[in-house]
Every structure is written in C-alpha cells, then in structure tokens.
Design a protein around this nucleic acid. Structure first.
Lengths: 333, 333
DNA sequence: TCTAAAGAATAGAGCGCTCTAATCCTTCTC
DNA sequence: GAGAAGGATTAGAGCGCTCTATTCTTTAGA
C-alpha cells in the first residue's frame, strides 16, 4: 500500500535506480529500449517522483513561493494568476500562502514558505517589516510587488501610481472639473505614489489639491464622503479620485445615500480596475494596471536571479491606463 | 553562505545532531542546559529546520494542500481563510494552488500538490473528473468542498443548497410574490441542490417553478434577464432567485437597463453572501453559508483521517441563513 | 585484429533530517 | 558500596532521490 519508490520501478523494469532517475528527468542518454521499460514499469506501479526527495538531493527547487497579503483583494488574485501562468511556462510550480494583512501572520506565512527552500519568493504588497524582508532576502531571490525597497538584493515590480493618478486627474479636468478630491489610501504601500501623482497633477493644472485621509476599503470610502459633504463652509468637490476601487464603491454608495447622483452630481474614479469595477451594475471609471504583466515580470525577475543571470536589482515601473466607464461626466453647471 | 544545517548547529553547541533534532522538535527529555546551548547556537547561525528533509525523514507531513478551482470567487477565498486558520491551530501549514476552473489545469495543479506528499488535500469546488478524484484519493486523505461524491474514502463538506434555496423562496412568498424565477447555475456542482430546493419550495407553496438556464457569472445573469423579459406572452416574474451573487448583480444591472427598478418592480435574491453582496452600493439580499465553518470542518475531517481516527466517510451538510438587504420588497400591486 | 572514443548503464555517496537502539550518567535503594 | 532505575545523550541507519565517478558496451578507425 505504501507509495512506490524509484527502487520499486527499477526492480520491475530490471534496471538500476540511477537509470530510472535519468528517465524521469528526461535525459537523452538512455536507450529507447530501457526508457520504454522504465516508463511502462512506472505506469504499472503508478509511480510519480517524490518532489521533496528530489529537491533535497539536487539542492534545487522548482517551487516559487508567493505570499499574498490579502487574497480578498481581486487585484492580487489577478497578479497571482499571472505569476502562476509564467511559473508554469518556466517549469516551476507556484505555492501560495496568505498573511491576512497582519505583520505577524505574514511573518509566519513567510517563514513557512521559506521552510520549503523555494527557488524564489514573491511578496505581494506585504505589510511586513523591512527587517523581515531583509532577513528573507538572505535566503534566496526575492521580488516585491506593490512595495518598494532600497535593498539591492531585492527586485521590485510596481505600477507607476503617480502617472496613473495623473491620468485620472487629467480626465476629470478635461471633463471640466476643478474641485477634485483624493481619498488617500492610508498606510497601503501604493498610496504614497498615487497621492503624490494626484497632488502634482492638480498643481500642474493650477488647481488646489485636497487629500482626504481614508483607506482601501468601501467602509472607509463611505466615511470619507460623509466627512467631506458633512462639513459646513466651502464648496464640496465635484469629483473624487478614490484610493482604489473598493474605496470608490463605498464613496458612491454614501453619495447616493445623501441624495447625490453619480456621475450627474459627482464623478468618481477608482483605481485598479478590479473585476468589481467592470461589472455592469457598478461600471466604474478607473485606472487599470496590467496585472498579468505584473505577475509575469515578477517571475521573470526571480528566474533571472535563480539562474544567476543578474546581480543588480531591477525596478519595474508599469504604466497604467485610464478606463472610462459610467461614473464620470462633466460637473453640474 | 550556504544555509546552516543541523550539523553546523550541533558543532557550535558542542552536542550531537540527534540532540539538536530533539530540541527543534521540542522534546521534553532534554536538559535545559543543552537546550539553551542549542537554541543559542541556532539563533546565532540563523538556523531554521529544513521542512522537506524533515518530512522526508519522518515520513510525515505538516502540509495541507488546497486546490482552489477559482481564486476570483470571493466565496472560495473565505473558505480558504477558514482552512488556513484551522490548519494553523493544528500545527499544519496550508499550501494553495489554483486550477482556474479548467479540468486540465486542475489536474496539473493537483498533481503538483500531490508531488509534495501532503498530509491531506482539500479540493474546493473542483471541476476535475471523478476519475482524477478517485486517483488522488488513493494518495492520502481527501476532502471535497462544494462537490459531492460517492467515494467512501473521500469526505465532503457542502452547504445545504436545497434548504438555502427554500429559505429564499419562503422569504419572497412571505413578501407576496407568486411569480418567482430561478436562474440556474448550470454545470456548477452546487447548482443541482439549489435548483431542486427552489422547485420543491415553489411546489410546497402551490406555485409554478420557472427555471431559467444560466451560469454563475454576472454576464449570464444579465443575459437571463434579457431573455426572460424579452419574451412575449405571459406575465414576467416579480422576483428572481439567482444562482449566486455574481449572477444576481448581472441580473440587477440588466433589469435597470430595461427600466425596471430593484426592488420596487422586481426583487432579486443572490446566493453565497460574498463580500460583494454586503457592499453598500449593492446591498443584496442573499443566502449566507458559514464559510469559515466550511473551512474548519474540511480541515477537521482531514485531520481525523490523518490521525487514523476515522475510516468511514463523513458528509457535512451546513445550514444556510437568509440575509435580507435592500434588493427584496413586496411585488408591485 | 586491436584500440580508442563515444554512448549506455550503474555503484555508491550524500542531501538534511528523524528514529531506533544503544550508551552514558546520575541518583536512589538497601 | 554495589546494583537497579531512569533520564539524558549519541551513533548510525535510512527516507527517496540526484550526481559524480566508474564500468560496461558498442562502434569506428587504423
């Protein structure tokens, strides 16, 4: 009942264990006679190589570890799919782990991933401490997605949040808006670039930036709306650039609750173009990041390090695009 | 630069490798003197046990493999979180893999998972062939979530879709609806129970069931609406029980497009209570499954098998609850 | 016919760990 | 002070595989 091992296959095929190993690894220096015998024996026994024993003996790994800070964020899931596709093409297998946006849990998850001695690690928007990242980077190639670092042993893949935010501002200005608020992403690692891009773009247009503290959740988006429109004095914005799509959805709900129509009274732009934004019922104007490409680049960077083709860090900065849907329109007269 | 091994720690601490092994496994038969020395040495070298070598030698595994058919479905993600939490408590680590709703990819993913010789496997709503499941179940404990089987070597955790659907019908009937349609989930494995529950509940109320072929996507939901309301002859339904939340969202969009208001003109009920449904902007009446509980039960079932505490299959059928939000109301007069 | 070279197959050590059995200390008892 | 008992420690084999030599075949060349 025990699972068959290489020795079992070797015995059945009447060859040595080493030959079985060669066949399983697809070596060309094997006569087709023996190869067929080995494959037949393996099939008969239902033998499949023991991945762990294999990587232990070869001191190599075909595993790419991926730590996702938050699986509930559709953006990350799309990146994961990109990673998976690229990894499969390269003959690697992806193994995911999640940290639930908690530094402690992320640390545990990362440690668990590392205990498999993977060929490399991708951290998706980790909230981990820089120290933990430094430590992990000593164990092998490491790529950071949606987070920056100064470590030269670590590669990064980020979207150009500054340009993306500027795209949104330009779009709104073109529609005629002048009072455009930004709901900030708070401690999210991508928030800084977006905020700076927004502020710079507003200045460029000769407009006053207005950054409202918020977070990347729908609850926070709703709260920010109630705060801004609840204030007395000053004219309220006619447009909002939310920190991400979730925040935008929350904002829209809250706006409609206080009797404002989107986009007739207020325009709203999201960020990330999650599947949520695309749904007919929502139809959110938003900024799209090439998510599959993010995953692909992360894997590519990792593999370059794995193969020792590169030592210097690479910093990918991906261009975003504007996706116009139904939540933006000219401001009310 | 090579990663430290047990031998390095043993030498630095001035003890045998076996003793280091005992300390790392937390054995109580070690003097605190030696234990401290070993731990100090391990800390100094930055040693962490090599999980693969460990499980190879012990012929055991602390890995629970999880194959998720579709990470984009928030429902599964919630179950995964439940699995993760339960696994961690039991001292196991979860490793995820995804099959992208393709039988071929799922097969690859499952094989990859199995090559790690995990302690057990959870398949989340797989579209895999029954043959592949049978084969995998020979390799170790296997739990199926959101899919049924007759295999006695496999445990299952499902929600009671029939009762859940009945809950929705009862709610709508109570509001006064009599023409209630059901948008079927097609080939999704949970669709059958929901459909049967709907049909039975309608009959129980003396109403005519009306099942519309659809799928578990928003596009399909919209299409079903256009089909039903595009028909000439007969009165259209005043309420829809969608196959799941995505389908419901699509249906709502399409209804609004053809000028019908939800819930004033038509009531819509979803299924799964995904985070989507809870968002203010959507606020969907839906059926809630205890997702974290699903994950917990799956892990529990797995561990009972791992520990050899049980041989007969267990079939969990979880009760759902109705969550009333803003998409259901009495029918128009 | 003999030898060299290339190709095919294998022996055996070792990857980093666990586990069994054996050995080494203490301490306790009479 | 001898022997038993029991806890602490270690030696060494082995998990399922890969990898470096090494050996065995075969074929080609002179």
């Amino acid at each position: 009942m025990a699972r068959p091992t290489m020795t079992d296959v070797a015995e059945l095929a009447g060859v040595s264990r080493a030959l079985v190993s060669l066949v399983m690894r697809g070596s060309s220096n094997v006569s087709s006679l023996r190869r067929d015998a080995v494959l037949a024996a393996a099939a008969e026994l239902g033998y499949t190589p023991h991945q762990m024993a294999r990587s232990l003996a070869s001191r190599t790994s075909t595993v790419l570890g991926v730590m996702v800070s938050d699986l509930r964020n559709a953006f990350f899931v799309d990146v994961v799919e990109g990673i998976d596709a690229a990894a499969r093409v390269a003959g690697f297998e992806m193994v995911i782990n999640t940290g639930g946006r908690s530094p402690v849990r992320e640390r545990v998850a990362l440690r668990s991933l590392l205990s498999f001695r993977p060929a490399g690690i991708v951290l998706l928007s980790p909230v981990l401490s820089a120290a933990a990242i430094t430590e992990a980077s000593g164990q092998g190639p490491l790529v950071l997605v949606s987070r920056t670092t100064r470590l030269s042993s670590v590669d990064t893949v980020n979207d150009d949040g500054a340009t993306g935010a500027a795209l949104a501002v330009d779009h709104l200005v073109r529609l005629g808006h002048t009072r455009i608020a930004h709901f900030d992403g708070g401690r999210a690692s991508v928030a800084t670039a977006r905020r700076q891009g927004y502020t710079a773009a507003m200045r460029r247009h000769g407009l006053d930036p207005r950054v409202v503290a918020s977070e990347h959740t729908d609850v926070a988006g709703a709260k920010a709306v109630r705060q801004v429109w609840g204030e007395s004095g000053g004219l309220p914005p006619t447009a909002v650039l939310a920190g991400n799509d979730f925040n935008a959805i929350g904002a829209i709900s809250a706006l409609e609750e206080i009797g404002l129509r989107v986009p007739r009274d207020v325009s709203v732009v999201g960020y990330d173009n999650t599947s949520l934004a695309a749904m007919g019922h929502v139809s959110l104007t938003t900024i799209d990041q090439p998510r599959a490409e993010v995953g692909r680049l992360a894997v590519a960077a990792l593999l370059e390090r794995v193969r020792g083709e590169r030592d210097e860090p690479v910093r990918h900065l991906l261009q975003s695009t504007l996706v116009v849907r139904a939540t933006t329109a000219p401001p009310p007269p």
